[in-house]
Design a protein around this nucleic acid. Structure first.
Lengths: 341, 341
DNA sequence: CTGAAAGCGCTAACAG
DNA sequence: CTGTTAGCGCTTTCAG
């Protein structure tokens, strides 16, 4: 396993197998390139023996594929991110690629992005950050395989969206059923398109359910901000008030606010979003809206593979360079999770 | 910003600037290579104009640096990981490198790792996964800049460790002071060396404080497992019992267990580990042990830079290839955070 | 089916 | 200070 210092190269393998570099390359290429069975076997054996692993940098240079997938995010902070990222990394590794995280805290970081040599050349990009518009994404990456996951999209291209209307509707229908008459809406970031649509849904369905929206506020998905707001506004939790939060973190703040103010039957009156484990733990019992992260990730990974094969076939046809001929916009539905003891 | 399809190359820049590729390369290299001021200016201007960004794959091939830093982790699940990863990615980006996540759920994944072309060639590796022994790490990467962060280390090489004895000692001293006489220890993963040392510290200091350890158990840092254990064991929470948990998640389980069993004054009797935000939120008020993640990350990043420059100077001296001449083992101290209302 | 050769884009000697 | 030259390791024509 003498790997340090000088890793074996294709030449080494070819030499040991007694064939040319070209043959060695074909033998190991995975695809079905023309080659005689015995030479292929010899090459593979030699490769094994030398512990040969192809240098991906040389490969990329020669064939334009990098084996990298970018995940473009805002700063990581939400607890709901944990499981999402975990399964995203896993999914990417499962198709033999590597996950490259790009953290984008503010628009200023985008300048740096433009200069970021690696991410420009990824095979695919998954855009979760709401700072990135489809058009910007288009210009940020050389690949056309940009999958928008932040709720934005263009006609051309790929996206996986979450249909939040369903879960929100069910949550509000439930609220109506148990007699909630007034509502406070604690939302996330005003600048996010995702969030804008989400708020829209709340507004529509609250109105339909005849629940009066008493106030609404943006708290950046943050526990602290939400708690500060509730405290400052001195929200009156008489029985018919429902607190609708667009993240479980903020819903936790609502729970703590209620407890601090001696409100005991808050559980059925607080609604979170994300369906994190926290919505069903101990004192933090509240209902929440969410979706199956596993389905979500699966759709994304499938799309990455599909996009790539489209790319290849287009390239093979005429070597024409143009926008992707295929597009795809998948939709995942949210669901309402009732968690009341 | 006509970037798609055919990105500008060094040749394009050189041509536009009216110089040779070599001069263009030097002008843009960042380092202080010999070049006349006016040519440098011309080259930079040309590069700007063309929106030139160097191809990192070609660069890596030519100069052996990849600009990639691997972060080797177990699956992401712990809430305390959020802030750590966030600032780790940020730190890596701050020195102009990219974070490559490698997720390792079980030892079987290591086989794949051996074949993982990218990670073998990273400029540095940060090993957090407790599945990786120093020796294995050594063989996994071509670089010597492997920084062990999982509590393991060899004489030669780099590590940043956390001195957990301090925080644990203080926590137990506090417990003694408030009259705790009996203890339950809920630990993480038995196979982890970090965890083994940690348990050792608890045992030592509990004994010194004359607190009797009634039982101890490994719950894989998990809320669910911890709660299941407490429930199954039907732990008796009479006043002098302290519950010491090696993660905040498990401490939350302890809180919920107490609440479910009508124990009201649990706050000062439950001790977590990680110092997550949850230890001071609403009903989850408990003391916790932790360290400054920012310091931790800073130390790591500093080490990465230092390791790299060592590498370069060694390479420059005689182009000798050998084990790193320098080593460094930094230690970050934990602290006890008292969070009782 | 095979091998020689060109080249991906860049850097690093090496002479000027 | 500058340009020429030779690679880094791999894939891919293109003749045999």
């Amino acid at each position: 396993m003498m790997k340090k210092n000088t890793p074996a190269t294709l030449s080494d393998v070819a030499e040991l197998a007694g064939v040319s570099k070209a043959v060695a390359s074909r033998a190991l290429s995975g695809k079905n390139r023309p080659i005689s069975a015995d030479k292929k076997a010899r090459v593979c054996q030699a490769a094994e023996l030398l512990g040969y692993v192809a240098n991906p940098f040389a490969q990329s240079l020669a064939n334009q594929e990098t084996g990298l997938v970018a995940i473009v995010i805002n700063h990581i902070s939400n607890v709901s991110d944990l499981t999402l990222f975990d399964s995203l990394i896993q999914g990417i590794q499962s198709i033999g690629k590597q996950a490259l995280f790009v953290r984008l805290k503010s628009l200023q970081d985008i300048d740096q992005l433009q200069k970021n040599a690696f991410i420009q050349r990824v095979d695919a990009a998954l855009v979760l950050s709401d700072l990135i518009e489809p058009q910007l994404a288009e210009s940020l990456f050389y690949t056309h395989n940009v999958i928008m996951l932040n709720g934005k999209s263009q006609d051309r291209g790929y996206s996986v969206k979450v249909n939040e209307a369903l879960g929100i509707k069910d949550a509000i229908a439930y609220a109506q059923r148990i007699g909630i008459k007034r509502a406070v809406l604690i939302a996330g970031r005003q600048s996010s398109v995702n969030e804008e649509q989400r708020v829209e849904h709340y507004l529509t369905h609250l109105a339909q359910a005849n629940i009066k929206l008493e106030s609404s506020v943006f708290c950046d998905y943050s526990y602290d901000e939400a708690l500060a707001y509730l405290t400052a506004a001195n929200i009156d939790m008489s029985d018919e008030l429902g607190i609708f939060c667009t993240s479980d973190s903020m819903a936790m703040a609502a729970v703590d606010y209620c407890q601090a103010n001696g409100v005991t039957k808050y559980s059925s009156h607080i609604f979170g979003f994300d369906n994190t484990e926290f919505s069903r733990r101990g004192c933090y019992q509240f209902s929440t809206i969410g979706f199956d992260k596993h389905d979500f990730v699966q759709s994304i990974i499938t799309l990455v593979k599909q996009a790539q094969s489209n790319d290849l076939s287009v390239a093979n046809e005429h070597n024409e360079k143009r926008l992707p001929t295929k597009e795809s916009h998948l939709i995942i539905d949210t669901q309402f999770y009732l968690n009341t003891p």
